[in-house]
Simulated assay, not measured.
Amino acid sequence: MLKTIKQDLWSHLLLILLAFVALYPFFYMIITSFKTNGQFYSNFFGITFPLHFENYATAWEAIGGYIFNSVFIGVASVIIIIATSALAGYSFARLRYKGKNFLYMSVVALLMIPGLLTLIPLFLLIKSFGLLDSYLGLIIAFAAGGQAFTIFVFRQSFASLPEELFEAARIDGCGELRVFWQIVLPLSKPIIGTMAIWNLLAIWNEYMMPLVLMSNPDKFPITVGLIQFESQFVSQTLYGPMFAGYTIASLPLLILFLFTMRLFMKGLTSGAVKI
């Protein structure tokens, strides 16, 4: 009994230490965001008073537009990814036609190609469409980049649904689109939500693609915009507003995950995603 208690104690202490290491940088970012330069240099690691909330107003004025750009680009890209990948996944899982396996294996093979290798061809392709430095060009690029993995996951998920449901629907006279809309989508809400969150996180954190495809600072997403923001405040050595900007930039994803964590975990444990 005593041995078990000691083992549990050390396990809990280790978990507490790991949690501290993981959470302290975020805590440090928040407390620094309320400091003036004098408070920053006088008390580097601790909380100082008074708290300077005006740092957030200054930061929001500088990066608010970047956040709106990221939200617009991310939501539009995710809608395209989910809509097209769900249809493709249903096709690979439930329809029968010549060349289906070859097409599916070609999609899966794309997962083995690092994204950086496609950056220059993608740039040339977007340029040939005349869509450089535009929201549409970046949305198309993100939507194309998220297809392969999402199609793979949807195909696995749709293939695991009971065949009897589809046979009963077809006997009742349902066409394929009606089966997809009324049977497949309602039963696949957890995995659809999971893939939507997964792709939104990837798009929100992407840096190289918007850096290459965009040149107008007014259209930058938050990842590229933060570099502009950081250079502005580092040159003035204003650490409070700079860390306030970092905090604001991290809040949308934090809020999204807090409100969708149950759906995300349900999708991961539904058997469709095996990592």
Score class of each variant (00 low, 15 high):
254 L>H: 11
109 A>L: 10
133 D>A: 13
131 L>Y: 12
117 L>V: 14
142 F>R: 08
76 A>H: 10
218 D>K: 15
1 M>G: 15
248 I>N: 10
219 K>D: 14
256 L>W: 03
127 K>V: 06
52 H>V: 12
92 F>L: 06
205 N>R: 02
54 E>L: 09
185 L>H: 01
169 A>G: 08
187 L>A: 12
182 Q>N: 13
195 M>K: 03
8 D>W: 04
244 A>I: 02
3 K>V: 15
103 L>A: 14
269 T>Q: 00
168 A>G: 01
148 A>M: 08
35 K>P: 00
9 L>G: 00
45 F>Q: 11
205 N>D: 06
108 V>A: 12
12 H>E: 11
10 W>Y: 14
262 R>C: 05
8 D>A: 03
90 Y>T: 11
166 F>H: 11
111 L>Q: 00
25 P>H: 07
114 P>I: 10
12 H>W: 13
9 L>F: 04
260 T>L: 09
270 S>Y: 02
13 L>R: 03
51 L>N: 05
162 P>A: 05
206 E>V: 06
166 F>P: 05
99 G>P: 03
60 W>M: 14
142 F>H: 14
67 I>F: 04
91 S>T: 15
234 V>K: 12
260 T>F: 08
149 F>A: 11
39 Q>F: 13
222 I>E: 01
168 A>C: 00
133 D>R: 13
201 L>V: 13
263 L>G: 00
243 F>C: 03
270 S>R: 08
137 G>V: 06
39 Q>T: 13
116 L>S: 15
15 L>A: 07
188 S>M: 07
46 G>W: 07
234 V>W: 08
198 W>G: 00
134 S>V: 02
192 I>Y: 08
31 I>K: 10
159 A>G: 00
48 T>Y: 11
40 F>S: 04
230 E>M: 07
12 H>L: 14
68 F>R: 01
57 A>Q: 14
140 I>A: 01
162 P>D: 05
56 Y>L: 00
128 S>W: 07
7 Q>R: 10
160 S>P: 04
180 F>L: 09
223 T>E: 09
55 N>W: 04
205 N>F: 02
142 F>L: 10
165 L>V: 02
159 A>P: 00
9 L>H: 00
19 A>K: 07
183 I>H: 09
5 I>D: 14
260 T>I: 02
198 W>T: 00
96 R>Q: 15
266 K>A: 14
6 K>F: 15
10 W>K: 12
161 L>A: 02
22 A>Y: 02
117 L>W: 04
144 A>Q: 06
198 W>D: 00
184 V>T: 01
139 I>L: 03
233 F>L: 13
254 L>A: 15
95 L>Y: 14
243 F>S: 08
50 P>T: 12
21 V>P: 06
147 Q>W: 04
173 G>D: 14
168 A>T: 01
94 R>E: 07
14 L>Q: 13
22 A>R: 00
267 G>L: 04
112 M>E: 11
54 E>S: 12
219 K>C: 14
156 Q>A: 11
275 I>R: 15
44 F>Q: 11
171 I>Q: 01
